[in-house]
Design a binder for these strands. Sequence first.
DNA 1: ACATTACCATCTAATTTTTTGATTGAGTTA
DNA 2: TAACTCAATCAAAAAATTAGATGGTAATGT
Lengths: 303, 303
Amino acid sequence: MKIDIESFKVLQVLVECGSFAAAAEKLHKAQSAISYQVKKLEQHLGVTLFSRDKYRAELTPEGRAILAEGQKLLAQMANIEHLAQSYSDGWEPRLEMVIDGALPMEPILVALKRMAEHKVPTKIQLSVEFLGGVQHRFERDKANLMLVKDFRGALQYDPRDLPEIASVLVVSPAHRLAGMKQVQLHELQQHVELTIEDSSPDFGYQDDMQFGGDKVFYLSGFVMKKSALLKGLGFGWMPDYLVEEELKAGKLARVDYAGGNRFTFTPRLVSTRERPLGRAGQLFTQLILEEFSRPGFYHDALG
Amino acid sequence: MKIDIESFKVLQVLVECGSFAAAAEKLHKAQSAISYQVKKLEQHLGVTLFSRDKYRAELTPEGRAILAEGQKLLAQMANIEHLAQSYSDGWEPRLEMVIDGALPMEPILVALKRMAEHKVPTKIQLSVEFLGGVQHRFERDKANLMLVKDFRGALQYDPRDLPEIASVLVVSPAHRLAGMKQVQLHELQQHVELTIEDSSPDFGYQDDMQFGGDKVFYLSGFVMKKSALLKGLGFGWMPDYLVEEELKAGKLARVDYAGGNRFTFTPRLVSTRERPLGRAGQLFTQLILEEFSRPGFYHDALG
DNA sequence: ACATTACCATCTAATTTTTTGATTGAGTTA
DNA sequence: TAACTCAATCAAAAAATTAGATGGTAATGT
């Protein structure tokens, strides 16, 4: 004779209705069934829930307390059913995403905010990595989505292009490189290059855009890289949207590198066919596309 | 076909054991019963909990999430059973107490602390009232215990004496009454008397110890009364234990009232025969008796 | 490669739990 | 007082759950 959630439902309705018979009617049951359920619950708990010495059965103080706890139980049960309903409506329970720190966070955060506004039941986890670390983590954690800068595609992946992002080679105006015209590669190589540290543990990945000088500082993110640039520590690539202000204000200067001081990359939104996106992943995909394509945002930063 | 708590227990054990057969053995059931329970739960929730395409059945992501919620359900259920066990062990679900603000809080709080150390499952509610307010609230709220100063006993009550507490008539040393010898009643009546406001809404109750002058200030508690005394606003009774320090330090002085500047009262712990005390009430009664009888506490304050 | 074992779904029959419908005694209302 | 409502109880019926047997498939051992 196991305890049954239904007993608490009965208890609840019983108290609402005020009598066994009324509760029976409300639950489309016979009155004896209610009696039976209450008795069962009382026996199982070893506690008298109702005092029957008066005409109407009345909740005991213990009954009141058990009822209150039972409500919580019912609420948790309802919660589970709601969750299950969400799942069978196509929402996935979790959405894990890995994002390249080189990409602008603003549209990503806006997309997440809009997700929240849609009351999506999916639990979302977002990790930020750099360079090879993105793909490494995506594979290690078997994440669902990856928002990545450089992507070596394979068959099982399902990539989708986002609008291009441009980068520019910059340096502090106080730095020697700032004043030079038509800087040659060997000249660049004599200065400190600032780079983002690859966050993958195994270095199978190599940044295309490194210059190969002796003095390379590896930094752990664009915030640090930018402040190192501002301090005149060295030169390095920065996405336009991160240095627009500083260039305008003259706090940073473009390096006039002979090989070109601009390059663009195409961020990609990648999922895998093994783990097809659920409803939340699809919604996020759509929102990310919208936010990255929104005019007047970081595109304005482009010269 | 209703959903059953037992299903979640099965789910839990199933995941712990890793196989249907092992779970069946652990639960002393046939393997087919486990299959049946899982299928039932899946159907009811409309969600696939296990993927059976591989050799071993494996939790789906949805299953993992449902399991996590199910654990909460089981925890709540266990909580209810624990509570019920407490009740059938004689613990009452609630203990409501009303306390006279004239009594020292220290031993009461110590008793409550010791209650907590006993891991009493009873929910405790404590209200502080003054004079007639104590009994009024006791009756209105149908509380279980009342710790009261003056008590008009009736048959249905079950009072129990606590050690006496003494009060003294005090005033600021700067006040005119402070220097006077053998103060007569009519002299007292010309000054402001400070009294605690009766907290009962209907004033059926009248404080015995008032002097009947014109100028009476009603204050809402001893903290306020004491600071009014210290400021020299008037004179009034204070329990010894509250003014011991001030008398020693000379910040307050005894009034040399010809009718006597001391009176004692007997606090009483009262319950009613209609609502006999449960285990928590009995324990509290015992602890309160111990704390009020503890030597070296507020009794030291007595001259 | 073959036999053996472990895994889980499914089926039927047995068992247990729950519901029903009728009855009873006690308390309430007209 | 008669008619009524309340809740407990009982036996029978209905429903849910379990055990035991069987079968197909995947892993394991020889």
